[in-house]
Design a protein around this nucleic acid. Sequence first.
DNA 1: AATAATTTTTAGATTAATCTAAAAATATAT
DNA 2: ATATATTTTTAGATTAATCTAAAAATTATT
Lengths: 220, 220
Amino acid sequence: MKLSTAEENYLKAIFKISEKAKKSASTNAIAKQLSTSAASVTDMLKRLAEKELINYEKYKGVTLKVAGIKQATQLIRKHRLWEVFLVKKLRFSWDQVHEIAEQLEHIESEELIMRLDAFLDYPKFDPHGDPIPNADGKFTIRSQTPLSDMHKGQEGMLVGVKDHTTEFLKYLNSLNVKLGTMITVIDSVPYDGSMSVNLDNKNVIMITATVAQNLLIRKV
Amino acid sequence: MKLSTAEENYLKAIFKISEKAKKSASTNAIAKQLSTSAASVTDMLKRLAEKELINYEKYKGVTLKVAGIKQATQLIRKHRLWEVFLVKKLRFSWDQVHEIAEQLEHIESEELIMRLDAFLDYPKFDPHGDPIPNADGKFTIRSQTPLSDMHKGQEGMLVGVKDHTTEFLKYLNSLNVKLGTMITVIDSVPYDGSMSVNLDNKNVIMITATVAQNLLIRKV
DNA sequence: AATAATTTTTAGATTAATCTAAAAATATAT
DNA sequence: ATATATTTTTAGATTAATCTAAAAATTATT
């Protein structure tokens, strides 16, 4: 089924909200995610329900039906593959690619995505460390822990970031923190959750709890 | 100025029609080019005139203003760069890229196009031999003749095709005719304009006038 | 130049996606 | 459990882009 850009964006928003909250998505949550009004969301939910893409009962929130999940994961696949292209081939920085990929993900061509995937050597993760679903919608799973959950002396590699905003990523750039950076917890302050960490066994920096929560580590 | 996809498509259509006919574009010609109704065209022309992108007087046809030409050439630039990407990097055949490039050309990001251009090594021509305008909108000019205008004994290299339809390009594939193929006129029949031509000094084939008109040759 | 044919525009609708404001339903708090 | 707050839906408009059918203007033909 061919969907409009708007419809695709709603499906993706519902997918992301349900994934994070692990329950049905509310009208307001969707409105917030898409920066639109609750009334617009209600309108669109009716149309998506009509097309059998979502389960929707008035006042009860929505979940995706199988067809909706398929569409959403394909969209995420496209988005993340394009991000890899932008960073690996066009040498964009990881903080510049989101908006462009938001546009590219709506290009419709199966063949294009198959070839792009091959051209990029079938990447499993995007430039922010998020898993790229394969053509069947399967995500690669990887054990990872927020840095904020690690204890003094523990060590690991940065494999992902939770916050994708330009500001956060630029801050990481300024600290010279990137995917692959080795991080060791030197000290953590129970009072405010801030931490001292060693980067690549070279320099020690201090980060706040908020930052630590947004860094995903694969322990060694 | 940020334009909608529809507006961009109208500007491109007007550009192409005026370029070919070397005069103002009529409502019907635009409608035909875009497979839409004349009424829709009139509506859109009013809006484009309002935005100062075209010169439009009722019943008189339209021409592009400077701002409209700029938009149209940038669109053509994007389309042709994406076609190069699809053929050179993703290994699509030249008969498969048009529709995908029609979508990609509407992606909005100056930075993306600058980087894509560099990634592709600043190509001057697309996979069909059409010139790619540079960032300033300048086209590279090249002397070329339709094969149909050449005479017995004349020789040259195929540098472009006028017809971009899948059917025509697939027919050329079947003849093993591609950009770069050397073509010598063995014989031409005045009665119907058909020709016998030698390809790469290997084999001789017969083509109709229609085909010959759509093959652009740079004479040696 | 008058008439016929063609082209273009207008009038009036339609659809998708959005909005604000008001009403209705649900959830929360005393 | 009743009142209050919050969330969600409905009602009614708006905008961009499209359509068909009819009217108006232009162009072509005898």
